[in-house]
Write a protein that binds this DNA or RNA. Sequence first.
DNA 1: GCTGATACCGTGGTCAGACCACATAAGGAG
DNA 2: CTCCTTATGTGGTCTGACCACGGTATCAGC
Lengths: 245, 245
Amino acid sequence: MADAPARAWRVVLEKIESDLLEGVLRPGDHLPPERELAAALGVGRSSVREALRVLDVLGLIRTATGSGPASGAIVIATPHGGMAALLRLQVAARGFAIEDVVRTRLILETAVAGSLAREAEDARLAGSETGEELAEARGMLAAMEMSELSPAEFLALDARFHTALAEASGNSVVAAMMAGLRTSIESYVIAGAERVGNWAATADRLRAQHREIIDAIAAGDSARATRLVHDHITGYYAQSGLTAD
Amino acid sequence: MADAPARAWRVVLEKIESDLLEGVLRPGDHLPPERELAAALGVGRSSVREALRVLDVLGLIRTATGSGPASGAIVIATPHGGMAALLRLQVAARGFAIEDVVRTRLILETAVAGSLAREAEDARLAGSETGEELAEARGMLAAMEMSELSPAEFLALDARFHTALAEASGNSVVAAMMAGLRTSIESYVIAGAERVGNWAATADRLRAQHREIIDAIAAGDSARATRLVHDHITGYYAQSGLTAD
DNA sequence: GCTGATACCGTGGTCAGACCACATAAGGAG
DNA sequence: CTCCTTATGTGGTCTGACCACGGTATCAGC
């Protein structure tokens, strides 16, 4: 096989991954101290640190200095940051075209809206209580009603509105991807907003669209919710010139 | 603001990211040598290496020893590996449920099939030549006709078939995500295949479904293509017990 | 002059040791 | 018992060294 000579940092990464798979390590657990890990695996501490740095950026662990229960490297498994970093850097390196990022967001978000509407419909038919998961999204919607918001502030709330919808759908992978996609093109979105002439009118239109989307979802009208989300997103990107530029 | 004391490795990461954004660094370019980068940014070489390791795993750079034009750290921007690593590790750490991974794959893949079918329909109406992009997928389909394949071999071709479809759609983000999603649950998929009693019959069914999908896409029937892909995926996961386990 | 073997040098890969900053825990002074 | 000081363990960083590798330049032999 003539295997590659097993990069030291990869040994560390695989050891931790296998510990995770076998359940030896679970979210909330502490990793061994770097020096101990290095000695146990027969590698240098710097190699351990390279592996831990990767896990850190990927959102698998959190490191803290000091001593006590909150210090050291702790398994956390919060994928948002890692997904955002990956997408943002790939966009920066031209591995991903912004156009593809927008198209992907469109796919995921229309699916989310359709799924939420179907859930609402099912709940309505079953006579269950409904609307619980949409509370967060509705809150963002209310916050966006304030008229004093700058484009950047408005768009931050807008982002949280869409993220809240994704999280309401209960699919953590989609939620992380959507948050990452959004973050990766955030600077472009803000730049686009500043190119929009009449921001107040645009904000009004976005607010109205958000309300329509929420209403369609709550009403269980998945076809309408899907179409509204589609128009909402394509409309904004078309206006701010993101797909053309 | 009391900014965090600017972790040294993060300084390096941000420097490289900004160089990428400004076009100072482009795919194919060499990064400065580690020692030089360390001196230029006023950090230690180990900190530089931690940052480069992250970029390496994320698929932004490729490093090679030796000298000459092929050595050193080179910007590559190939997101598949990084996406796969992120998803696989998050699944291992229980940040992502396998069920959500499957559901996300379903969303993306049905969208891809529908998009391809619509493209084919548009091309047909315009009288253009068609089917060019599906050549790769058709090739995988032909390879899968061989009856001597083990489940693992068959599934590898199956994975390439689906990846080829995603790439044919021209959306690099979706292609990378689908490849990553698939890779992240590969071991589970193979384990599921070994639980299937009559593998030959299952493989036959999968082959038939693949042919139907390709046909529906080529015919420009997006509704049918979407439905077929949906049934294809849910059927397999249901049979191999992946969604329940 | 041409060809081939050899030494050189720059690169990433790794290790070892040292020191710092930080936050808790342990111990002593009041 | 309380409060302050000290000890301890952790990650964060830097420095220096050495290795493996692979082009490139050099030089001997033809």
